[in-house]
Nucleic acid binder design. Structure first.
Length: 432
DNA sequence: TCTGGGGTCCTAGGACCC
DNA sequence: TCTGGGGTCCTAGGACCC
């Protein structure tokens, strides 16, 4: 059996922790650049706020319904996420069974194969109670024989909070059938917009229960090959999606951003890209990796008719490094000529991004007798840089090429304090 | 006027090899 | 006019996830 533990309205719940007067009030959190709504409390959902809609389209609703709005505060959410995951690892006895897989900032799978059937319900309730007591973050727990089914369970647990109290265990044939009958295929983990429409319109398949009875060979032909076969098996309670090794490294590292306002000058574009390279290189070093290729892309004009103006031929360049590296200076040196070759005078740039690929373990690098000395020094320099920036401030020490004025930086006009990660922003209580 | 960011996996097709 | 078979590796693009 698998559990999936999912934090309820995670970003909003983090904000409420330090503003308890917002409990049971409608709250939303925005994406970077204060663009879209990416987290909503139940009250905000009831007030009619949809997921992922642009802020400017919801202005009226926000005003009339008295909804509180926050910019995203990733320092706070990242730190709270760590606390929740640490709690789960402790409760699930992860040091013995290595059974917790952190799936996203607000979700984790737990492999429960070491628990007897009769203990599942109690275990789920304990997770729910202890996590909220220790961290203040409410969670929902779904348990079932496969990952896909546990997601189904979790969704139902969340949906009907009163009845199920945010816990749902699907361990009998009857419960499974009922759950699958009330789940639309579009709500399945692994069925997105395209497949949902295809299933509905072309095959008349609307519920997960219907899909579960389709033959594997049909799924292989019509539902993405082996992906479809896996879906059918998972729906039938045959687990095919394994737990992922927590030590696995990223295969690609990207840093991309919309600009706070349009960029026209080459110099500014280069600064932005140099800044993104620095961020990406930090992430790379954190996993002890080195990259062997770097991609740079730009997007002009923002969105037109729902599409960004992006043409791979003209807006994208890549470079293969002679040797894999994690050195920020080397990566910036590789990236800047790419920006120059992409730049067109007069274009209005809305976004840029950097992707590091061909990632290999740093210690597997082939040594070069002649630059060994240099290499050591650079590595020490990068380590010092990371230490300072980690402990002091995000960009306390930075490369000049990444700019000093940074006119293009993203908007974040409603960010709350970084209460748990910055000494000078600790939460203050005034006692009367 | 204003629409996020960062990933994964799979497949098809081309280049290249013997 | 006739023109093989079987691999591997890489890349682009599609679909999905939160």
């Amino acid at each position: 059996m698998f559990a999936i533990v999912d934090c309820n309205s995670f970003y909003c719940s983090c904000e409420r922790l330090f503003k308890p007067h917002l409990n049971s009030k409608p709250v939303v959190v925005l994406s970077n650049n204060d663009g879209c709504i990416i987290s909503r409390t139940d009250e905000a959902k009831k007030a009619g706020i949809a997921m992922g809609v642009p802020l400017f389209e919801s202005r009226e609703l926000i005003r009339t319904q008295g909804i509180t709005v926050f910019s995203s505060n990733y320092h706070l959410y990242g730190d709270m996420s760590m606390r929740v995951m640490d709690t789960l690892r402790l409760l699930a006895d992860d040091s013995t069974y290595r059974c917790v897989e952190v799936y996203s900032v607000d979700e984790a799978f737990i492999n429960l194969s070491h628990l007897p059937e009769h203990a599942l319900q109690g275990f789920a309730e304990r997770l729910r109670d202890v996590v909220v007591q220790w961290t203040g973050i409410p969670v929902s727990v779904g348990i079932a024989p496969s990952k896909v089914l546990s997601k189904v369970a979790n969704r139902l647990a969340k949906k009907d909070k009163r009845k199920s109290h945010c816990v749902m265990v699907l361990n009998t044939a009857d419960k499974l059938q009922e759950a699958l009958e009330m789940t639309d295929v579009s709500d399945l983990w692994g069925i997105g917009r395209k497949y949902a429409r295809k299933l509905n319109d072309l095959y008349g398949i609307n519920t997960a229960w219907q899909l579960r009875h389709m033959p594997e060979e049909w799924a292989r032909k019509n539902l993405g090959g082996v992906v479809g076969v896996r879906m059918i098996r998972e729906l039938n309670g045959v687990s095919c999606i394994q737990m992922k090794d927590p030590l696995e490294k990223k295969k690609m590292i990207a840093t991309t951003r919309m600009f706070g306002k349009p960029v026209y000058a080459l110099q500014e574009l280069k600064e932005a890209v140099a800044t993104y390279v620095s961020r990406a290189a930090e992430k790379l070093r954190r996993q002890y990796g080195a990259a062997s290729s770097i991609d740079v892309f730009v997007v002009t004009n923002g969105q037109q008719s729902g599409q960004y103006a992006y043409d791979p031929q003209h807006h994208h360049r890549y470079f293969t490094l002679m040797k894999p590296t994690s050195d920020t200076a080397e990566l910036i040196r590789a990236a800047l000529p790419l920006v120059e070759s992409l730049y067109r005078k007069g274009s209005k740039y809305a976004k840029a991004g950097v992707m590091l690929g061909g990632i290999v373990p740093d210690d597997a690098l082939q040594g070069n007798l002649f630059d060994a000395q240099n290499k050591q020094q650079n590595r020490a320099l990068m380590q010092a840089l990371d230490n300072i920036n980690f402990s002091m401030r995000d960009d306390m020490v930075k490369f000049v090429s990444s700019g000093l004025t940074r006119n293009w930086k993203m908007r974040q006009e409603m960010r709350s304090g970084r209460y748990t990660t910055r000494w000078d922003e600790l939460h203050e209580l005034k006692l009367k």
